[in-house]
Design a protein around this nucleic acid. Structure first.
Lengths: 242, 242
DNA sequence: ACGGCGTTTGCGGGATCGCGCAAGGGCTTT
DNA sequence: AAAGCCCTTGCGCGATCCCGCAAACGCCGT
């Protein structure tokens, strides 16, 4: 059994090695990478290897690496081992998991026991093991209760990037008015619709406020913004060429 | 010599203990806290203790704890040991350092050698030791080159929270026009002033765009927003009582 | 086919935002 | 004092945003 560890913090890496030595004695080969690029290359060279990987790393993100790895070999088992339980990460992952692939998501703050159980569950039993703190988000993220449609989430990203209504309409292929309707739904779900009673003057700019509470609720985070920004640049470039 | 370690991640804590044992043999008493509140209480009970502490912890932040500790005893030496070099954190700290206090800021990704040097420099030699990656921000944060005035930063936070121009004017005691001038300076410094040539339609909503690039450049982060949000709630409450 | 239900689209108006222009106050320089 | 600079404030205009209203389209079940 072969394992590929992807983690850029040497401290966490050594902890990981130790836990794996204890929990997975049937693992006899361990490869290591410190970023997404090396991870993809190593995964290509060792087609049988399972993967444990961190999410946020310098350069290529764990999510990006996972996407290309899964695209090339959808049965690869991956355990994501991350600091955060932001919805932005969970959403990013649940969008790229291939049907039936075994994977896991455990927080670095989890106990040793939890990590060991996840390692054995995923790599020996082919289970999916997801920490409780994450599981809550998982469901909201796909179901609807308080969660966001994919297209609503896209528009949310667009206003977070600072796009104008008209630009969003053009980019997403909607009419101007539809974009505004989307915005209204978003304002509703984020509960920024003016609760201000009576004839008072509004204190909040809904558009900006929506982005604010989205970040506070961890629907958006720095990484998600960066990815969206990159996509935006691509779109702008293609658009400039008429 | 007494030391107080404030760190909520047991893994990092044990690493810290180990490094301190090696680098500071003259340290004979070590206390530990896992959050800001406990840290403040312990610091009160042991007035001679120096402090090593993490920045982001559940509950009370390291920055908040540092502020109250320094308020009570401005000569306390504190080494901040953190994952991030976001400007938001650096700014938060440089606002609360008492005159002449010895303190330090080293990244968790730094080498063992760097950490040991910082420990000895701060606690034995009364120096200020700040990692290079952070130092860059430090200077921009206070000087002006590309950096932000305190009042500009406040307004930036306000629009990030979603406040309306009028609300900002009321809150900061400025005229509506002055707020707009501040915004213009902010747009300038963030380089969101429409580079769009010719009679094209604008693609960006400046207000929202400014927040976006502020986050991408790590001028703002989740923690800074949370603190600002808390202050905002306080202001709104006081305002409601006319 | 017919009547509901949700979504999409257009129109119009009121409020806000973005900003150029110009007048005033405070500060330093000559 | 006079001149210069920076910041503040007010006025006004155009563009955008926010939203209520109503018509058009697709979808579903009886």
């Amino acid at each position: 059994m072969k394992l590929l560890l992807v983690e850029d913090d040497p401290l966490h890496l050594s902890y990981l090695r130790e836990q794996i030595g204890g929990a997975l004695p049937e693992c006899d080969e361990v490869f290591e990478a410190a970023n997404g690029q090396d991870a993809e290359a190593l995964a290509r060279r060792h087609p049988g290897a399972d993967i444990v990987m961190d999410l946020q790393m310098a350069g290529r993100t764990g999510i990006e690496a996972a996407r290309t790895i899964w695209r090339e070999r959808p049965t690869t088992r991956i355990l994501f081992w991350s600091n955060y339980s932001d919805e932005a990460y969970v959403r990013g992952i649940s969008r790229i998991v291939p049907m039936g692939a075994a994977y896991g998501y455990v927080l670095k703050s989890a106990s040793e026991e939890r990590l060991r159980l996840a390692l054995r569950g995923i790599f020996l039993q082919n289970q999916c093991v997801i920490d409780n703190e994450v599981r809550g988000l998982q469901q909201r993220s796909l179901g609807q209760a308080g969660g966001f449609t994919e297209s609503e989430y896209e528009v949310l990203l667009d206003i977070a990037l600072g796009l104008t209504d008209r630009a969003i309409a053009e980019r997403r292929g909607l009419s101007l008015r539809s974009v505004q309707n989307r915005l209204h739904q978003i304002y509703d779900k984020l509960e920024v619709s003016r609760p201000e009673a009576g004839g008072e003057e509004p204190v909040l700019n809904l558009r900006a406020r929506a982005v604010s509470v989205a970040i506070l609720r961890k629907l958006l985070n720095h990484g998600a913004l960066e990815r969206a920004e990159a996509e935006l640049r691509g779109w702008m470039a293609g658009r400039a060429r008429h």
